[in-house]
Design a protein around this nucleic acid. Structure first.
Ligand SMILES: NC(=O)c1ccc[n+]([C@@H]2O[C@H](COP(=O)([O-])OP(=O)(O)OC[C@H]3O[C@@H](n4cnc5c(N)ncnc54)[C@H](O)[C@@H]3O)[C@@H](O)[C@H]2O)c1
Ligand SMILES: NC(=O)c1ccc[n+]([C@@H]2O[C@H](COP(=O)([O-])OP(=O)(O)OC[C@H]3O[C@@H](n4cnc5c(N)ncnc54)[C@H](O)[C@@H]3O)[C@@H](O)[C@H]2O)c1
Lengths: 223, 223
DNA sequence: ACGCTCTTGTGCACCGGTTCACATGGCACT
DNA sequence: AGTGCCATGTGAACCGGTGCACAAGAGCGT
């Protein structure tokens, strides 16, 4: 049911794959490929071909049977869905090891997410220039957001400061937040927050490794 | 999906939540709390209480009805499941912006994943000391893995070098890999690889933001 | 024009995960 | 011991996602 004025709802799982398709399609476009089949795109993205077709069926990007999809059209359509091909400036709260690395990452800029503002609570960090941007006091966050017209916030503070950082971002009008701190934070339901937990990723790997080796050195408490 | 039968199989979704429970439980233990109910643990972890109970039912950690779960017992049991409380040294391939940030992260060490080895292809980077560890040539990866007894590999190279980096890790005997490069890489099926794609995370946020604002896109690509 | 081939688009069955709802059973207090 | 209370543990419905399998349709060559 497509309603005028509203963008159709696309399943979360599909949305999560669109960026992957985008990457693959950019690669194809670079090498001059103009048409692509669901099978080859699937291979490129590491997913099932039927899944690709179903995903693309949610977009306004129909392919032609017997031929495939037009790379350029697909690219444009995915870009429209993912933020309307509009640039979304990002502000980072907490410019430590991770914050600096993220600031210097040019892949964000290329993807339409320029790092526009940096703030930190530490006076030793404030005033320093990182990747061409001067770090400003966290108290001036609202100003920074306003000046840079940032729409996305990244939290890279220690875990115990994450809730405060998120609160400040929401207060400043940010509605999309990426949180790298290993902490569960509460946000109003009109705010979209995503958690990136690197330590957790390693622990999940650890579980599977443990299982694989089956090396049970621990006191298995069997009932 | 592997079907090794040594240790009981735990659903993936549950495994992904165990580290979160672990964090919450550590917090509780620090503050001297000895018993915890599924409701409060759920709140702490940001999930549904019934879900917590079902998750914990997969472990050998049963609670007592009317009371709750013993924090210490739960902690021990989760630790056992997640890698048997054994330290899993990590080797990082690609010591650029991100690789350096990860090297300096003490949360990994605390979680049982000490950064034991660093390798890079750039002669300018090789030999430099990062977080107390000397960066070695990527050609010596197998040696580094052997010497450090690393069991986990992290790929933090540019995307176009990711497949090569992964191949080297597998060649060196690594069976658990965390890949930060935005690239789909192929691995033998006895290798466990997890993708961390930060740019994708931002793009997903962008989609929801785009939807929320309902700012009907005007830059409709002409046909 | 016709039929062959190729790929899309999708109905449908399957599966893992989530959540509700409630029976089960331990604990404390009288 | 009896009674009330409370939290666990789980059966079952529900839900979103995946992938097979196939019909529908486009292009092409004869
Ligand atoms: N470094 C990594 O590779 C890595 C990996 C995984 C997770 N993390 C997580 O990312 C977060 C940042 O890690 P890091 O290594 O950069 O830590 P860090 O200590 O190097 O940097 C944290 C920065 O946040 C600032 N800060 C502290 N409180 C603040 C506040 N209330 N408002 C604004 N800024 C504040 C500090 O001044 C510091 O500059 C941590 O939560 C960590 O657990 C980091
Ligand atoms: N920096 C970030 O915050 C960030 C964020 C998201 C994703 N990433 C991804 O992480 C990866 C690393 O990012 P970065 O900013 O650290 O890049 P970088 O260019 O700073 O570092 C890459 C490092 O990898 C090394 N390298 C190149 N080819 C290699 C090879 N074949 N073997 C071993 N080492 C090799 C380089 O010498 C360099 O030191 C990239 O794929 C990037 O897309 C980075």
């Amino acid at each position: 049911m497509s309603e005028v004025g509203t963008i159709e709802s696309i399943p979360d799982a599909t949305v999560a794959r669109l960026p992957v398709y985008l990457r693959g399609l950019l690669e194809l476009a670079d090498t001059g490929v103009e048409m692509v089949s669901s099978v080859s795109l699937a291979e490129l993205a590491g997913v099932n071909a039927a899944n690709v077709r179903k995903d693309l069926s949610y977009l306004h990007a129909h392919g032609t049977r017997g031929v495939g999809y037009e790379v350029g059209h697909l690219l444009a359509e995915i870009r429209v869905v993912l933020g309307g091909s509009r640039s979304s400036p990002v502000v980072i709260v907490g410019v430590g090891n991770l914050g600096r690395a993220l600031s210097r990452y040019d892949g964000f800029l290329a993807g339409g997410f320029p790092i526009a503002g940096l703030v930190d609570a530490d006076p030793m960090v404030v005033g320093r220039k990182v990747a061409g941007t001067v770090v400003r006091p966290v108290g001036e966050l609202a100003d920074v957001v306003a000046q840079t017209e940032a729409t996305v916030g990244i939290v890279a503070t220690p875990a115990n400061a994450a809730q405060e950082a998120v609160d400040r971002l929401v207060q400043a009008g940010i509605r999309s937040i990426l949180n790298f701190a290993p902490a569960v934070v509460a946000v109003p339901n009109f705010v979209d927050i995503r958690q990136v937990d690197l330590a957790t990723e390693l622990q999940i790997l650890g579980y599977h490794q443990h299982r694989r080796t089956g090396d049970s050195d621990t006191s298995l408490v069997s009932g």
